[in-house]
Simulated scan of single mutants.
Amino acid sequence: MATRLKVKKLAKELNYERNQTAIFFQQGKTYTIGVILPELSEAFFSAAISAIEDTAYKRNYTVLLAQSHDDEQKEKQLVEKMKHHRVDGLLVSVSKNTSSFEHFDSLSQYNIPVVFFDRIPPKEDIHSVSCNMVTGTIEAVTYLLKKGHRAIGMINGPDTLYASTERREGYIKAMLKNRLKFDPSLVVNCDLTEIGAQNALDQLLANKRKVTAVVTFNDYVWLYALNHARKLGIRINEELEYVSYANLPMTNYMSHAPLASVEQFPYNQGQKATEILMDLLSSKGTEPKKSQAYYKVMIESQLVENLKDQRLCQQY
């Protein structure tokens, strides 16, 4: 005891600081988790980041952020960098262009668990948190059908995204549920860029059926399509109405917001994904990998009507 006190006193006199890296190395942990997202600037992912940091910091974990800019090669490079930085685990929302997922599979060799959220790979052997886009799309399309629309277009995302498949599935189910025939020409894919959204809208407007409403992949695609329609002289919410996804705050400040938007609860997704990763890290090495069950969390979406825009329409 006396020796310990002498050591502490001497350390204080010498302004000694513990080498935290060495301590973590001895424990086999860095208490750092990596996060790879498509774009940190997007409001959706900003909300998810807030949840990730809030949840991780409560468990004394540091968060290392990176963005792929929707580039598959960049995403692969970031996975390697995260591995070399010895992160304990990884949270990922995949790039829209990612078509293979071997770079994530290889992390299991280094005992680095991965939890996907929002944009998840179409695989069974993964931990994931996502929003139910099928039911959300059924709600969105049914909402427009109840407003009297029959030729409803959809500007969907790229085929590489599983979320695009879910939206298409929801569109088809909504039509069949309402005893209407599914017209595949009314569902158009785009690459989520402004030019892509404009081209998709042009394709819908050129359809032999007069499209009177459009469901867009997200609020950004809606904004691109909205601006393009206005340039074409189309009267928004008179000749063409929109429903979107994400329910981003920016829509509240637009002169012609979408009639409704599918809320995807990004904070909840980020929080739950982080909690799952923490559980995986706390149980790391305590059970055989073959017997490991995969977390599959599905958060229900919610169609949110833009009452503000409806009140404006009633005034004019």
Rank of each mutant, 00 (worst) to 15 (best):
L281A: 08
S244V: 06
A174G: 04
L37I: 15
A225E: 02
Q198A: 03
N15L: 10
V221L: 04
L90M: 07
P113M: 12
K76F: 07
V188I: 15
T135M: 11
V129W: 09
R59P: 00
S46N: 06
M133W: 01
L204Q: 06
H84V: 12
H228G: 04
L226A: 02
R86T: 02
T286F: 10
L37N: 05
H127N: 15
T193M: 03
Y143F: 15
N60L: 08
F217I: 00
T137F: 05
Y294V: 00
I276P: 09
T30P: 02
M298T: 11
A11D: 01
K147S: 10
A151R: 07
Y220W: 07
K76S: 14
R311D: 08
P122R: 07
K231N: 15
M250R: 07
R150Y: 13
V87Q: 02
L40A: 14
N97Y: 09
L186N: 10
R167T: 03
I120V: 15
S93W: 11
E263I: 02
S282Q: 15
T21N: 12
L10Y: 11
E53K: 12
L91G: 10
L107W: 05
Y16W: 12
M1R: 09
H103M: 05
T165G: 08
H127W: 07
E80R: 14
V87G: 01
F117P: 06
L180G: 04
K177Q: 13
E13A: 14
N111R: 14
D88S: 11
E53I: 06
E39T: 07
Y143C: 06
Q20V: 11
K284N: 10
G136D: 10
F45C: 06
L303W: 06
V92H: 09
L240R: 03
N156T: 03
K76R: 13
S108F: 07
D54I: 01
V188S: 13
Y316F: 11
H85Q: 14
Y295I: 00
L303T: 09
S100V: 13
P38S: 09
Q314P: 00
S244F: 10
I299Y: 10
T62Y: 13
K8G: 03
N247M: 04
N60W: 03
D202T: 00
Q73N: 12
E275T: 12
L144W: 11
V221N: 05
T21P: 00
K147M: 14
E42P: 00
V214S: 01
Y220M: 11
S68M: 09
L307Y: 10
Q73L: 14
Y171M: 02
N237W: 02
Y61K: 08
N19M: 06
Q198K: 10
S95W: 02
E80M: 11
L10D: 13
L161K: 06
N60T: 04
Y31H: 15
N227S: 03
N247V: 04
E275K: 15
P258C: 08
L226R: 12
I276G: 07
H84I: 05
L232K: 14
N247P: 07
L145D: 00
M278L: 15
E42G: 01
Q26A: 15
D309A: 08
E166L: 15
R86H: 13
K81H: 12
E194W: 00
L204M: 09
L5P: 00
K83N: 04
E124N: 14
E305V: 13
A140R: 05
Q264N: 07
G28K: 08
A174E: 05
I23L: 13
S282V: 08
L180F: 06
